[in-house]
Design a protein around this nucleic acid. Structure first.
Lengths: 138, 138
DNA sequence: ACTCTACCGACAATGATTGTTGATTGACAA
DNA sequence: TTGTCAATCAACAATCATTGTCGGTAGAGT
């Protein structure tokens, strides 16, 4: 994801207004190392600016995803996760606490048996237990 | 997934009754090459045996998944897909029509940066367009 | 034949997300 | 500075997949 000020530029170019609510979402995403859900982005935003509706947060997140500035991840953890890191990378998902970490993997070769299928993207999801949850035996 | 008759054995060993409804689900899954949703399993079942409730189909699918006889796939296509193929393999997901195909990939190496994370499984999802949908431009 | 699980139908409830509506605000261009 | 229109609000309904519940019935397995 670009910087908040670059996004400001981009939004204006698209004919979209740069509102404080949108800027707050930009900032919340920029300062996120985890992979927040819409709910947690909303929580971060309302911490500084109450009265921002969850509806609006969803709107902005969808706008950003539509522009390719962030990625929406469906990791089977219930809610969608939003990832400001759009470089090619993959994910570690803790099956206990649900935390998501970035991980870089050697490019995954498109398998021969994929003939007759045009591959646009490959995503690798590693499931397991993170540091905090590893000691917990099942 | 094992054969319907093996599953019959297994269910009895677990103290579970082998009902016609459960057998119908076994057969529906056994004869599926695609990756059906609960809804489509239900459709296949009710084709031969009306009055089987969707609720019951969900039950049986969850039982089978709990026993490791099938896998529940969360591929971001809305509904969960159920896969009777429990061999190590991965998936091609058509972003246009939603069809899912099996694909076999060389074992994905767990990346070094995954230290501090105990990996239990790795799943690779290739997204793109299948034969039927490839000609459709965007 | 008896018992207890499984099933039914019918419905409510969940949780994430999107739609709607009517009123208000405020960003930006003129 | 002002006018316009997009954006937002609150509040609510609706969606979709899935699970829970319940009273009543059927049938699988001993």
């Amino acid at each position: 994801m670009r910087t908040p000020s670059e996004l400001t530029q981009l939004f204006r170019e698209q004919g979209l207004k740069v509102t404080p609510q949108r800027e707050a979402v930009f900032r919340a995403l920029g300062g996120s190392v985890d992979h927040p859900t819409a709910e947690s982005v909303h929580a971060a935003v309302t911490a500084e600016m109450p009265n921002v509706s969850l509806r609006t947060v969803y709107q902005v997140l969808n706008d950003l995803a539509g522009m390719g500035e962030i990625h929406a991840l469906e990791l089977g953890t219930g809610a969608a996760r939003f990832d400001p890191n759009v470089d090619t990378h993959h994910h570690l998902v803790c099956t206990v606490c649900g935390k998501v970490r970035d991980v870089y993997v050697d490019p995954v070769a498109v398998p021969v048996s994929a003939l007759g299928f045009t591959v646009d993207s490959a995503e690798v999801v590693f499931r397991g237990r993170c540091d905090d949850c590893a000691p917990v035996l099942h």
